[in-house]
Computed example of a mutant assay.
Amino acid sequence: MNLDPDLYQHPKLITVFGGSGFVGRHVVETLVKRGYRVRVAVRRPEVAYYMLQIGEVGQVQMLKTNVRIRESVARALIGADAAVFLPGLMYNDGRNSFSAVQEEGAKNVAELARSAGIQLVHISALSEATDATAYIRTKRAGEEAVRVACPEAVVLRPSVIFGPEDQFFNKFADMTRFSAVLPLFGGGKTRFQPVYVGDVAEMIARAVDGVVPAGKVYELGGAEVLSLRQVLEETLNVIRRRRPLMYVPFWLGQLAGGVFGLVGRIPMLPTVTTADQIKMLKYDSIVSEKAVKEGRTLQGAGITPHAVDALLASYLWRFRVHGQFSKITA
């Protein structure tokens, strides 16, 4: 943790793009605890004003920002000492497409941060699918744009991020409330290395502190590697429910995801999943041996990752039939 006394006399300003999201909220809180001032740059600040309660009065400020518009990005960077780029989409949403946000938006922030001499921390994604899905393809394209425009940026590639309000364990747990089975896409052999959102936030904060070497790509994984089957089994164990795991071929899953994706475009109806999300489940998301040897990991930065089983029950208990103290169902 940065304990420089001067920081509290003259606190630095950190602009966090996408700071009101799942990861962003933890990042903002971690930075605030270090004594930084934080500017939360988001498209809809009116739905995130609760974040102003974090830290001391005036320590967190909101600014309406659209990363697709360079003028908007430039305004968000005025007076900033560092910037963190977090925006990511799980599906296209009108003009806020994968390409517009994850590629062009990342490029805008990187170019303007470099021209202003501002330190940048960029969040990408960890997957063997370098260009097989629109999500990963644009994440990697955005990452490359950042490395070209801002060579000294710190690039972080997290595996599946878990924690309260995640879109992984929560989604599978929620499925048990309306489905008699859980889908085991492709046999459940795909491997993940779930990383706790708090550990990701700590890594970002250390990069902002300047204790993480700049100009490198870091791969962030948790304490253990789990197959998709193990993920589902652990979820069922925590929520104390029993559901058979049904093998579903990827092609059928993508077909169903395509239908759900179209239904999700109807106003007032949620997007359950998409074909792109199912396709991503084909590919492993684990830290490479090269990254481990070179110290480009959480452990290399001095962070001990939290285990999944140590934290999962703290937020999945709400999916138990009778709440926190319910027994497993027949």
Rank of each mutant, 00 (worst) to 15 (best):
F185C: 01
G186S: 14
G187W: 02
G188P: 03
T190D: 09
F192P: 00
P194W: 01
V195A: 11
V195F: 08
Y196V: 10
V197E: 01
V197C: 10
G198K: 12
D199C: 03
V200S: 10
A207T: 06
V208S: 10
D209K: 14
G210E: 01
V212K: 07
G215K: 07
G215D: 03
K216C: 05
E219Q: 15
L220Y: 02
G221F: 13
E224S: 12
V225A: 07
V225G: 00
L226H: 10
S227G: 14
Q230W: 00
E234C: 08
T235C: 13
L236I: 10
N237I: 00
R243A: 12
P244D: 09
L245V: 01
L245M: 12
M246Q: 09
Y247A: 01
Y247D: 04
V248C: 09
V248N: 01
V248L: 12
F250Q: 01
L252F: 15
G253H: 13
Q254K: 15
Q254L: 05
G258R: 03
F260G: 05
L262A: 12
I266T: 05
M268E: 06
M268G: 00
T271V: 13
T274W: 11
A275S: 14
K279I: 02
L281F: 04
K282I: 04
K282P: 02
D284F: 07
I286Y: 07
V287D: 05
K290G: 14
V292Y: 03
K293Q: 14
T297S: 06
Q299Y: 03
Q299W: 01
G300D: 14
A301S: 09
H306E: 15
H306P: 00
D309L: 13
D309N: 09
L311A: 02
A313T: 07
Y315T: 04
L316S: 03
W317H: 15
R318H: 09
R320Y: 13
